[in-house]
Design a protein around this nucleic acid. Sequence first.
RNA 1: GGCCCCGUCGUCCAGUGGUCUAGGACGCCGGCCUUUCAAGCCGGAAACGCCAGUUCGAACCUGGUCGGGGCUGCCA
Length: 475
Amino acid sequence: MTVRVRIAPSDTGSIHVGNVRSALFNWLFARHSGGTFIVRIDDTDVERSDEAHLVDIVTGLRWLGLDWDEGVEVGGPHGTYKQSDRFDRYRTVASSFVEQGLAYYDDRDEATLNEMRDRAQKLGKHPGTFIRRLDPPATDGVIRFAVPQDQAIEFSDVVRGEMRFESDSVDDFVILRSNGVPTYHLASTVDDVDYGITHVVRGEDLLSSTPKHILLARAMGAEPATYAHLPLLFGPDGKKLSKRHGDTSLAAYREGGYLPEAVFNFLSILGWSMGEDREIFTAEEAVAAFSLERVSKNPAVFDTDKLLWMNGEYIRALEPADFLERARPWVREAVGRELSEAEWGTFSVIAPLVQERAKLLTEIGPQVKFLFTDDLEYDEASWDKVIAKEGVDEILSDVADRLESIVSFDVESVEAALRALAEERGIGAGKAFQPVRVAITGSSVSPPLFESLVALGQERSVARVRYVLDRLASG
RNA sequence: GGCCCCGUCGUCCAGUGGUCUAGGACGCCGGCCUUUCAAGCCGGAAACGCCAGUUCGAACCUGGUCGGGGCUGCCA
């Protein structure tokens, strides 16, 4: 049997890292087993659905490197992969259930229902014990699925093992709302049956709903899929990851300077491991090693510290040319304009030094901006701490003279000149170099000094030091 | 309350009855390197929730207990 898996994110918001992790595991499973990966859109929440979110989902998945064999396309014909296009189908299924006596109309109002729920809870019973009616009047209202009371629902979950739910713990759930829109349970299960989904791989929050889905599939005369419930992703507070934990949308990480490979790798080790203490690996390696059986049962905390570290690892591992390509948009944004060919050349010289120390692509721009701007902004704290000190003017004045007199302005000469200065003045290297750093880069944190000076060029370096001297002189 | 899931360092994983005085990674602490910041290198603190049972032997098996989480909607 060929594996067919799917994800069905809803387009009510930006795609969440939890959903992305589900998508990733489905993709890994499909690719490992030579199966089919499908992307459906669950847009049954007509009020909150938005095409813009669909675009966000598709771009996000592509960015991560996930591809799918069937499903929605950006701006393309989503066809039958959007659930809103299949409302008729769901209604037909719901009606046929009613005709067969498997479901019924329920026109009781909410107050009545709530009252029943409260009563059930007080007695320690499941609401389903009360919200159930087998000989209903055929008026309007919602359609509920009549849960058969004669047998327990059992299934074997690939990650959790044997599961058993007593039928009285499942209430007669709504499958069609009074406005004619199907609920998640109905739409999702009908799709899974219609598209021949063999494995449903999703978050553990849906574990309790699985009996409903199995019942629905059987009612359609189909064999239920095999289920695999993934451990949930938690926030630092140990609660299900949600908006209030900060950046939970995939887009936030893309825009925050993370590499897709790093995010992919990091998400992969949340609830899964290939064993042997290996945690840095490529997508190909993950595909080759993946198995649902090795998925962990424990919830995982989304640890952004480790993601950040991993991103740094990936940045440093980039081929120089690749790094240049990826850095481009970030440099452009930080400088605020397109760079000239010559400037890109300058950047490519200093780039390896920046690559070594960046953990996020967003750090690149600020580190090299000093090379491409004429009105440098001086970081106030750095200025106060390093420049506005006794005797610094004298040092800088000397620095300017020495830099100016260098014949061949390369790293070796610059280093020799500045080291000689420190030695002759009898001061430490740090004391001599820090003022220069701040003078030419505007900050006490920068790429290595000599390389920075050479990249900036002799004339501009000297000019910057003199400029600082002027400012110092005028108080 | 009810149903269900989970329980190894702060965090993510390894571990499937003896090779575990429990291994790796992030983070943290200390040191080295050093012109800043990183990176790198060296070292350190840090966990099998608890109680029974099974067994010659339990992190691994069983029961209970405690703790955490999910679900309990005309959200998904």
